[in-house]
Design a protein around this nucleic acid. Structure first.
Lengths: 338, 338
DNA sequence: TTGAAAGCGCTAACAA
DNA sequence: TTGTTAGCGCTTTCAA
């Protein structure tokens, strides 16, 4: 039983009174055929509502025009935004996308990758700093937004990431400009290399202003969650009497910190300034609206899609490593410049 | 040039010293074979890292184990949560998912559906109240969370939705219990039938308490966005001096309303109580934390997956129309019971 | 300009 | 228990 009694190319050929080869040529616009024949075939296709079978086409051509996207957590609005843009751009190029949530699990990621390989996807975009993806050595792939732990510069793989270092620098600079002198850092440096880069930017900004980097002011969370950040804020606050600024390595952490500060009846930004990172869709609606670092989702996704398609087509890449600029978005969670 | 010089079943057969049929039997665990043969074949597969070609398998069996999910906007956390759960459950059943964002565009939706048909997907889950999906008449499909405008009860299609009416009722009842007597409704009833059902629940709750339903207190937004809701709040507030409650048909709208009230220096819930709908991940972190209606994402996605897989396998369905209960989550945006 | 036919990798019916 | 083989729908070479 065929699921939807689909026509095949042979039936279209019969209805048009031509051979299957000719129908194929008309559909794919290659080879030669009279405009008369073309018109007849087109009409039959139109009238019958024929849709070519991509599965058969893929088998024959070894190209299925599907791209796999490996993403840690689609619920995170930063990743969701990235995936949405990728999907739009790939669709415009004629590619479908299979989105694979890994939930940060290496096991699950491996299973997903096997499935993608079995499906013969044309390429893969990794938004995931996985350590083990040698499985896909021969498949066009791009790393986006997260640098694999194993990555080393002269790599055969393309890496596209934000200028995290500058982001960390700008946010810290803003806090310093706002008069903060005792800045705590809320991060989760084990998570990915982005946070490490942001941390370096933070250290640079401190150094530049002649402030010292006190390890006791750095708080590493076990996971990036609102609740963890809020709990940590409540825990550490009593021990830092002169705290006047918190540099949060993601907007999610910032929301937790803000929540904690509210519970402590600390006013933001009068008593403590807070900055985030990502510019999540809701960041402008936090209370107070969050000063944060905006990542350029359009540029990130654009570079990823462009690179990947070039790789698939066997074209030469201009760059193996794209660093996308970030920008500071000033809102109300930091004091006006003093 | 094969992209990743993949082995095929024939090579595995040769390496194992058996026929392709036997290899196929071992892989799919059907037919009979000696445990000796099985062990040999398994070892070869293991050592060679062979992954069967799903494309060929799909072509042969007309089953590709891919499900298409049509979703309006993956950036909306309610939809993102639903999609994430669907993906997890389908993956556990051996299905991959192709996620298609329509951005509420019928055009785009049609293109996506054509692509899905061409890919010979095994089924489709529509999280989308599209009016025109007869294209897929013969493909197993489930409507989830949004009722198609054309839907009529004794349908050949499965519909899975939350008990929106009760949700609207419970939220309104909570506002009334909190002492509200002049309740405004912020909705976007053109968007989908869910909002219409919630509105009926609202009317029922009012009637039950002997309150009248004043059409002048109903505000329909052109789109569900934080900014629109906030703007509308600012616009209407001056004309409703005794406003003491706002029933918001989604959490997104509620966030806009809260933002507007903050700007008007109105305290929540002392002066005005606010309720939402969805229980978005961030709803607990609004200021104040939002009283809202929780939709059971697990139950919704579970029912959808179960129904769809039964349809694909040609099994009989217990129910064509599943209504999933909702629950009231009380937080700080409504006054304590008076 | 068009058609015949091989074959992509796999499954499944039939044969042994 | 295992092997042989047709054929899923399509593209593409070769021939006409």
């Amino acid at each position: 039983m065929s699921k939807y009694d689909a026509l095949n190319i042979k039936q279209i050929a019969e209805l048009s009174g031509v051979s299957v080869a000719t129908v194929s040529r008309v559909i794919n616009q290659n080879g030669r055929f009279s405009s008369e024949t073309e018109a007849r075939v087109r009409r039959v296709i139109e009238e019958s509502g024929y849709v070519p079978n991509f599965v058969a086409k893929s088998l024959r051509t070894s190209k299925n025009h599907v791209i796999g996207i490996i993403v840690p957590d689609i619920l995170n609005s930063h990743f969701a935004g990235l995936v949405l843009e990728l999907e739009k751009k790939l669709f415009a190029h004629g590619y479908s996308t299979v989105i694979c949530n890994t939930n940060e699990s290496i096991e699950l990621e491996k299973k997903h990758i096997d499935t993608l390989i079995a499906q013969q996807v044309s390429g893969v975009i990794f938004i995931s700093g996985t350590k083990t993806c040698k499985v896909t050595q021969d498949i066009p792939a791009v790393y986006l937004d997260r640098r694999p732990a194993s990555y080393c510069e002269p790599s055969d793989r393309v890496l596209i990431e934000s200028d995290n270092r500058t982001g960390g620098y700008l946010a810290t600079q803003k806090l310093i400009e706002s008069g903060c002198r005792n800045i705590a850092v809320f991060c989760s440096r084990d998570m990915d290399t982005n946070q490490q880069a942001r941390f370096i930017g933070y250290q640079e900004a401190l150094a530049e202003s002649g402030l010292s980097c006190d390890e006791a002011m750095t708080f590493d969370l076990h996971e990036v969650s609102i609740l963890q950040a809020r709990d940590e804020m409540l825990r550490i606050f009593p021990s830092i009497p002169n705290l006047d600024g918190v540099l949060c390595m993601t907007d999610t952490i910032a929301l937790g910190v803000i929540t904690g500060l509210h519970e402590l009846n600390i006013t933001i930004p009068e008593q403590v300034s807070v900055t985030g990172f990502d510019d999540a869709p809701l960041a402008a609606y936090f209370q107070p609206p969050l000063t944060t670092i905006r990542q350029d989702i359009g540029a990130l996704s654009g570079a990823a899609v462009e690179s990947l398609i070039k790789m698939i087509n066997g074209e030469k890449l201009e760059s193996q490593h794209v660093v996308v600029p970030v920008s500071l978005v000033v809102r109300k969670s930091t004091r006006q410049q003093v």
